[in-house]
């Protein structure tokens, strides 16, 4: 991580890298927290000053890596707007949770422009976002059934759909409660996050 960025500041490429890495870790965290995959299949790493859990499941790992690369590419080109993790129940195909990350690209930045922002600060920001994701347990309902997840990426309109990707709908949660989470920015890319979950049935 340290070697990938120049010390002086953030470049477009560097920012894309940071953000995509964040997403990789973030998605892993979500999968762990929400129990999409058994917790035993996760292993720990240290990143952002936190202990993060990353999956060891090979298939999942490969999938996520691929997504991250694609995302990095899109981030570099400033063509991506949102990334969404949708958690659905396997049995009922009902969308139970939806994690949405809005990405704002500063399109004026081209190669060669360096922005001033401390690496440390960005890391702290990312850290707090991930911590917050962990803390959502306070209000998120228990996911009782086995769930699966989907990744949706909102891109610019005229982008061609890469291989292995398909077009899809927005997959909103019906009757949802939404909670806005923290955001972080690299001065070139800004990421806002929020989670939507099913409203409580007073049953």
């Amino acid at each position: 991580m340290a070697g990938q960025l120049t010390r002086e500041g953030i470049t477009l490429k560097g920012s894309a890298e940071i953000v995509s890495e964040f997403f990789f870790c973030g998605i892993n965290s979500i999968l762990y927290q929400r129990g999409i995959y058994p917790s035993e299949t996760f292993t720990r790493i240290q990143k952002y000053g936190l202990t993060l859990l990353l999956t060891t499941d090979p298939g999942l790992k490969e999938y996520l890596n691929k997504v991250t690369d694609q995302l990095k590419d899109w981030l570099y080109k400033c063509q991506v707007q949102k990334l969404v993790v949708v958690i659905t129940s396997i049995d009922s195909n009902e969308i139970l949770e939806r994690w949405q990350f809005d990405i704002e690209c500063d399109k004026t930045v081209k190669d060669g422009i360096v922005r001033e922002k401390s690496q440390k600060v960005i890391q702290e920001e990312i850290r707090s976002v991930i911590r917050q994701i962990t803390a959502t347990v306070t209000f998120l309902p228990l996911l009782e059934t086995a769930c699966a997840f989907d990744l949706l990426i909102y891109t610019d309109k005229d982008l061609e759909v890469p291989e292995k990707w398909e077009e899809s709908g927005p997959q909103f949660v019906s009757n949802s409660e939404e909670v806005r989470l923290r955001s972080f920015t690299t001065t070139i890319h800004k990421v806002n996050s929020m989670v939507a979950y099913k409203k409580i049935d007073t049953c």
């Binding site: 911590r131 803390a135 306070t138 209000f139 998120l140 228990l142 409660e177 909670v179 099913k198 409580i200």
Partner: peptide
């Protein structure tokens, strides 16, 4: 941020099975 009390008090909040109303 202003709406983050839940995070600050997360240890004090017992999670409910059905979730909480934010």
């Amino acid at each position: 941020q202003a709406g983050d009390e839940w995070e600050l008090s997360k240890e004090n909040v017992q999670p409910l099975r059905q979730g909480r109303v934010m």
